[in-house]
Design a binder for these strands. Sequence first.
DNA 1: GCCGCCCCTATTGTATACAGTAAGGCGTTA
DNA 2: TAACGCCTTACTGTATACAATAGGGGCGGC
Lengths: 247, 247
Amino acid sequence: MDDQPRASQTVRTLLQLRELILNGDLSPGERVSELGIVERLGVSRTPVRVALVRLEEEGLVDCLPTGGFVVRAFSETDIADAIQLRGVLEGMAAQRAAERRLSRDALSELRDVVGSLDALVRQRDLTIDDFSDYIRLNDRFHGLLLHLADSPVLKRSMERVLSLPFASPGAFVRVQAELPESREILVIAQEHHRAILDAIENGEGSRADHLAREHSRLARRNLDISVKNQRQLDRVPGASLIRLRRA
Amino acid sequence: MDDQPRASQTVRTLLQLRELILNGDLSPGERVSELGIVERLGVSRTPVRVALVRLEEEGLVDCLPTGGFVVRAFSETDIADAIQLRGVLEGMAAQRAAERRLSRDALSELRDVVGSLDALVRQRDLTIDDFSDYIRLNDRFHGLLLHLADSPVLKRSMERVLSLPFASPGAFVRVQAELPESREILVIAQEHHRAILDAIENGEGSRADHLAREHSRLARRNLDISVKNQRQLDRVPGASLIRLRRA
DNA sequence: GCCGCCCCTATTGTATACAGTAAGGCGTTA
DNA sequence: TAACGCCTTACTGTATACAATAGGGGCGGC
């Protein structure tokens, strides 16, 4: 059961604490007691404190002025902004990738992923497993985009944004899977993927940029849909951190 | 002499350690010994460790796989990428500000700053103090832009990028001050400021975006100039962290 | 003389002890 | 009965002690 037997206490604590927060075992606004975590995870206060500092930098917890930390709550606006920001960063990544005039060979992996996605989306009826595969391939596509941009600075910045789990490219796919028009949305998303690849292959930086930004708006749309239906919102990773303002 | 008598040990340690790194008292690649810092700053290891973790998240130090931290070194490419990223984020900020259709009243502060900058740049001969004033007003302009974007997520992301000191808007102004064409560059930069304000006033989001991106390229150009002249590069904040690849 | 192995030391990861402070509860008084 | 104040308690900030590990230096063998 112990996933990380070799990892240091600090790393294990960070991972487990992050999971506690993302799973909703700790509620937004709730103070994260160091001693409470010590009891739960069976480590001393020192690794817990380090993990809390890192999570604060990640943005999952907030520092209280009086000392200590609380689990952060995220509004619909926060999520929408994070999605927009991801779109902008992916736009920059796509643009850079395009303007590097990469060889056909350097793009073979990206082309393979787009090909796999094509095959997947072409199917009539999509199962739960298909959506899992889609999420995996989609993450891979977005990861490759970032890689092809060849910018550690950009990569780091993106990782920060993605540490908010509902900002990740696959965050709303499970929501979307429940919609009647789910397959059509995948068709559109995949058209974006193909077009982004095409733009990169042809060195069309601005086109790649705009396509990536538009692509992220699909997530934004799914967010809007989810907000109107709390049940669907629960399918989003880190759902427990979302606090909608009362209507 | 003690700037922060009331602040906690942790905060003081973070500020002082950051200063040690930025001043070059600790060289890039050099291991940051906890005990060494303890001796230098007269605090215990605990606040030092917290400060190191925070600085690692900021990107000023790197985690060694064996444990401990080293001061990071930044290449010319890193700096160029950070400047480009800042331009993209400021573009997003400007676009958001524009598309919010802000009232004339909400923009009065930004207009004042642009007015002050106008008056400053209009002068024939610019003194050192004038450049200091320019940096202050310029920072204020960029800060207001971020504020008007009204996005905590974006603000946080920008703060991360700006924690690399040579990515900040004013980083290369002191370099530029030494150039024969320094005043002309200021004239161009100020034209950008005016145009960005105009775009925001008129709700022209895309124009604001592109102007902000182009604006950041002035910093990029100054970087290129600085690289050809090590003496000028030393004027940049955090210069000691910059390691150019041998020609 | 050079290379390799072993031991020692320095440094970090981890745990815990101590002190200061803020918050909450209870009692008293108006 | 409600409000104010004091006291207690539990928490975090800080310091330090202990253990494990990695790296370096020295010694010995080839």
